Amino acid sequence: MTQARIRVGVVEDHPLYRSAVARLLDEAEDIELGPVADSVARFAASREAPGCVVVLDLKLRGVADAAAVLEVVGMGHRVLVVSAHAGQSEVLGAIAAGARGYLSKDADGDEILRAVREIAAGNSYVSPTLASFVLDSARDKAAGPKLVLSERERQVLSLVAAGERDQDIAEAMSISVRTVRSYLDRIRDKTGRRRRPELTRLAIEEGLAHDLGR
């Protein structure tokens, strides 16, 4: 009996790298190439049936970073991030958002295929050079105190994770932009997270973003 091929899509905005990855996948005998797109929105427009493995860049136009992972996972796909940005915050943010694997763009074709096959089999795959980030984070989370945010702060944080701007958050919560920024300052003071991608990752870690991006 012939084993079903692995359906794999690509979301990557760099034309040459997108073409190279698509060709690598298309030439593998056990892989069926799915949608190839330059943004999450264009991938979503393909209406790919759930269950695809998606090779995803992080720095995309439109929805990006952990929010991009969250949206693709919300479509029912398994995400392998392949990104030139492989710092601790990017790796942990993507994993927290539901990515099943993470490689830097230094990875060769064989490692990309190996990661795709592992993820398709229901496993996870993180490049050995990045695995220490995940292990260190797990230890820190087990040892650290639980973060305490007010209900309004949690609501603001969930809207940040959804990609909303300060003005949009103000309208959604019927408060002023100044008040939104005051909540954000408090969240930053409590957590030490300054940038929006870091706040998105925090929302995911705190379970405030599970229904976003669907």
Rank of each mutant, 00 (worst) to 15 (best):
V55S: 12
Q167G: 06
V156F: 06
G144V: 05
A120M: 04
L33N: 12
Y17F: 15
D57R: 00
D189Y: 07
R117Q: 06
G122D: 05
L159K: 12
V126W: 08
L202Q: 00
A121N: 02
G93P: 00
K59N: 14
D211P: 06
Y102L: 00
A142Y: 11
V10I: 09
A143C: 11
E27K: 14
G192W: 03
P145T: 09
G74R: 02
A86T: 04
A172H: 15
R117D: 05
R114E: 10
L70N: 04
L199M: 06
R196W: 05
L70D: 04
V10M: 04
S124C: 14
P197I: 00
S19E: 13
A99L: 03
S150C: 12
L149K: 12
G144C: 11
V126R: 09
G163Q: 04
S176Q: 11
P35I: 11
I95H: 02
D110L: 07
A143G: 08
P15M: 14
R195M: 01
Q167A: 13
Q167W: 08
V8L: 12
E118Q: 11
A84C: 02
D13K: 12
M1E: 13
R139H: 14
A22Q: 13
S127K: 03
L135S: 11
G207Q: 00
A99T: 01
A209W: 01
P15G: 14
Y102K: 02
G122M: 06
G122F: 07
L212N: 08
K146W: 09
E171D: 15
S174I: 12
A68M: 10
A84M: 03
V116R: 02
T129C: 03
S124N: 15
D189K: 12
P50V: 07
I31P: 15
L33P: 14
A107L: 07
A20V: 05
G98K: 00
D13Y: 12
A170H: 08
R114W: 07
F133E: 01
S89L: 01
S127E: 04
E32Q: 15
G122H: 07
V53M: 13
V40T: 05
I175M: 13
R78P: 03
I119M: 07
N123H: 15
L60F: 10
D106A: 11
G192I: 07
K59S: 14
A97N: 05
A64Y: 01
E111N: 03
A45D: 15
D185G: 11
A138Y: 14
H77Y: 00
A86W: 01
S158G: 08
R7M: 10
V11D: 06
S150T: 15
L16V: 14
A97V: 04
R154D: 09
D30M: 10
R47V: 10
A64P: 03
A66F: 00
K190Y: 03
R178P: 00
R47F: 11
R5A: 14
R196T: 04
R61C: 13
A97F: 02
R100K: 14
A41I: 10
V69F: 01
